[in-house]
Design a protein around this nucleic acid. Structure first.
Lengths: 234, 234
DNA sequence: TAGTGGTCTAGACCACCCG
DNA sequence: GGGTGGTCTAGACCACTAT
């Protein structure tokens, strides 16, 4: 019935397998045929079947173990994937005009919480920035950022008056490791003023810590204007 | 200098390429050698190089086009990947005891915003649930959920008094499409009471809409207790 | 139109790990 | 011990698209 004569691509195989999962032909926790068997059924090769199953496993549907075989996950371990775009691009995609503004820039001793968070030595100086990002001149995001000058010495000479720190840093340390978190925080007076929101309003917040080869570079907190949400479809 | 004699695995190649990106040997916006050339340099085959570069592109470092070649992205389009776990597992991983409780269950006409959101016909009945998830008996998450009975008729007979709707649904429609959003919302009196938070506190909120083959199944809003954050490392 | 990546084949060796 | 997936090879054809 479901036999296929012509060779199938790994995409075809993925979609057939997904269909069978949805239809319950291969129910939760059951074992799929081996790659070789599937290759035969699909008039394909093991390499092709392997790619299909590997991707389905990466996407959270299957679990694969040598010798044990390929098993259907009972609770598909779905993953939400969100892009971490540049603010400029994020604003640009909505068709709005992007504008950047520096609010403040100073050199200060790293506050204790920051030093602890980034494993900085006590008394370490950092460059502290506050910036605003606007979409069509409406507040879009307030950015608070601390940069460690021992990691990026040029930061001491950079005024950040026309280029945001994120884009500036990307030019110097484009391929870093990072930790990215999202949370909800509360608008204090400063946030309320800059984001044009009532004091006490919930503010969607992202925090990003960047390292290069184990050396902490920067911590950024991004506070979004009311109504912002991060969405993904899968 | 950097010549390799023994054949390298696709992992080795990935890490060498990443090193060169970090070192700026292949700077932003520059063109990498073709797959065949790299295969020669690495004493490997094009298939293996292809897998390495393909994965690096998926991870957001490179951009690949036929004929145009492989280009280094100026601003690496990093992606944050968050797991969407079952509450039970999320709580369990912290070592805490998980407990589920049904707060309310009723059948009601879909409110207008929900009907619009899920493209339901006017006057459609839905099952409306409110549930609590506890970690070591402390509030962890309040879940508000609406299920469309025309899509899952058995829902009308399910009391949901011992098993949460998410796990219940997973057994029936495990392989669905979904839209997942996160945002910040504000604790009203009900939320404050159940999550043991002050009224007006910012509440990290996730919303999940599920379809099966284009048919809307359910919408869920998950309100997390204060202090919750979603984190990922890359 | 020529060069690049996208994909498939047919075969091989190996690491892992269940029974 | 033996079967499974993980990976690599060497070669091929094709689709796309920059020039």
């Amino acid at each position: 019935m479901t036999a296929q004569k012509d060779p199938m691509s790994y995409r075809d195989i993925k979609s057939v397998v997904l269909d069978r999962l949805r239809a319950g032909i291969w129910g939760p926790d059951s074992l799929l045929p081996s790659e070789s068997d599937l290759a035969t059924e699909f008039s394909s090769t093991r390499t092709t079947v392997n790619r299909a199953l590997r991707e389905l496993a990466e996407e959270g549907f299957l679990e694969r173990k040598r010798k044990a075989g390929t098993r259907v996950l009972t609770a598909p371990a779905r993953r939400a994937q969100f892009a971490i775009p540049l603010v400029r691009e994020e604003v640009g995609e909505t068709g709005a005009d992007y504008r950047y503004a520096l609010v403040s820039r100073q050199i200060e001793t790293a506050p204790a919480w920051l030093a602890a968070r980034l494993s900085l030595p006590a008394g370490q100086d950092v460059v502290a920035l506050t910036c605003m990002h606007y979409a069509d001149n409406a507040p879009f995001q307030l950015e608070q950022r601390w940069i460690v000058p021992t990691a990026v010495p040029e930061v001491l000479d950079e005024p950040f008056d026309t280029l945001g720190p994120n884009e500036w840093l990307l030019k110097r340390v484009p391929f870093s490791n990072l930790e990215f978190s999202v949370m909800a925080s509360k608008a204090d007076e400063k946030l309320a003023e800059f984001l044009d929101a009532p004091v006490g309003d919930p503010i969607f917040t992202a925090e990003r810590i960047t390292w290069l080869e184990g050396t902490p570079i920067t911590l950024a907190r991004m506070y979004f204007a009311p109504g912002y949400r991060m969405t993904t479809r899968l």
